[in-house]
């Protein structure tokens, strides 16, 4: 993991000179070991920034809130917002730029490299600790995790504790940034979609039961949607509960919201909801895993999005979040796109 002393210096300077409105970063969490999002407005608070393998959150989601806030203000402060991003998060910024949701001048990107590592999977950690409480998680010079508990330190190999998405990460360093802390070192990656194999190898019937079992637990709390930086629509197409009504919303517009599915948490409706979400994230999901982390029922949502990421790569050679100038996955085609499924 990178050292962030240079980042802190820059952050202080930016705040002191008023070049950014505020900085979104990571700070110490309230529950002990896990970092938490931190909003810094004063240079003297910069030292509260932390960077360790517990910085799991994708802070880019806060840019969505920032944009909404700005839209409501009469005379919004147009200065950029400073934001700490990991490799995956930076690709979320690229997608938001690609979709013109934000402008490059809206953000000052403080990139931090995971340097061959990544973030911890809290479920894996809990299992390892078997009831003990973690105080801190660090990475040592040999790229091993060092977990400090009440009873002392435990060392673990990277693979034992890394989140699955980090094990399948294509770029463990930011692809877009104004300042980069750390080196652009990649961890070796032989199976970028290895985690899907288990589901893919099932029969259609077994896949169906697998997903039924998983998605039947969904209570449609929409935490997945709220945590996702790509779910920035004011109103989701699957529900009409919060139509963005403004002074010029016509009755026609209100009437024209389509009830594609019911809001009840039934098997069919849950499945269709997650299908719609998956297809709308095709070519946009950067695998930050926030949906899955936010899910109170621990539904493995990442496997839905990862599947389409894989298909986009294999069918169309499309990789998400590397170039803001590229058209979106579904806004372009190649003459040689496969059509063996078409009669």
């Amino acid at each position: 993991m990178a050292k962030i002393e240079d980042l802190k210096e820059e952050a202080k300077k930016l705040l002191r000179e008023g070049k950014v409105k505020y900085i979104i970063g990571y700070g110490a969490g309230s529950n002990g070991w896990l970092a938490a999002p931190l909003f810094i407005k004063k240079p003297e608070d910069v030292d509260k920034l932390v960077w360790d393998p517990t910085c799991v959150h994708n802070l880019v989601r806060f840019l969505v809130d920032e944009k909404r806030r700005k839209a409501r203000q009469k005379q919004p402060d147009k200065r950029p917002v400073g934001i700490m991003v990991k490799g995956c998060d930076s690709r979320a910024v690229v997608v938001l730029l690609q979709e013109k949701f934000i402008d490059r001048s809206d953000v000052y990107i403080l990139g931090v490299s995971c340097e061959k590592m990544g973030v911890v999977d809290d479920a894996k950690l809990a299992k390892k600790l078997a009831g003990k409480k973690a105080k801190r998680v660090e990475v040592d010079a040999q790229d091993r995790f060092v977990v400090t508990t009440e009873d002392g330190k435990i060392e673990m190999a990277a693979e034992e504790l890394l989140a699955e998405r980090c094990l399948e990460c294509k770029a463990n360093f930011p692809v877009i940034y104004d300042l980069l802390s750390g080196e652009k070192t990649k961890r070796p990656l032989d199976k970028p979609f290895g985690s899907l194999e288990k589901i893919e190898s099932l029969s259609a019937a077994d896949r169906s039961s697998f997903w039924k079992e998983q998605l039947d637990r969904c209570i449609r709390c929409y935490a997945c949607r709220s945590a996702c930086p790509m779910c920035y629509c004011d109103e989701c197409v699957v529900d009409s509960i919060n139509l963005a009504v403004t002074a010029d919303t016509t009755a026609d517009e209100k009437a024209q919201r389509i009830h594609w599915i019911q809001r009840s948490a039934e098997s069919s409706e849950n499945l269709v909801y997650h299908l719609v979400r998956a297809i709308h994230l095709a070519g946009r999901c950067i695998d930050c895993g926030e949906c899955e982390r936010a899910c109170p029922l621990d539904i493995p949502l990442r496997f839905l999005n990862k599947k389409l990421e894989k298909e986009a790569k294999e069918l169309f050679g499309y990789e998400v979040g590397f170039d803001p100038a590229l058209p979106a996955l579904i806004s372009c085609f190649r003459d040689e796109d496969p059509q063996d499924f078409i009669r």
Binding site: I199, E200, A204, A205, D206, R207, S208, S209, F210, W211, K212, L271, L275, A278, I279, A282, L304, K307, L308, E311, A312, L315, F316, L329, I330, S331, C332, F333, D335, D337, P338, Q339, F341, I342, R343
Partner: peptide
């Protein structure tokens, strides 16, 4: 039709992935 081909290929893969029988969704020229 080229956009359709790309978009609906993804839909087909997704439906198969969640266990819908592959014969149920078809596309033709």
């Amino acid at each position: 039709n080229y956009y359709a081909r790309r978009r609906l290929n993804l839909v087909k893969k997704l439906l198969e992935y969640v266990g819908l029988e592959t014969q149920r969704f078809q596309m033709s020229w």
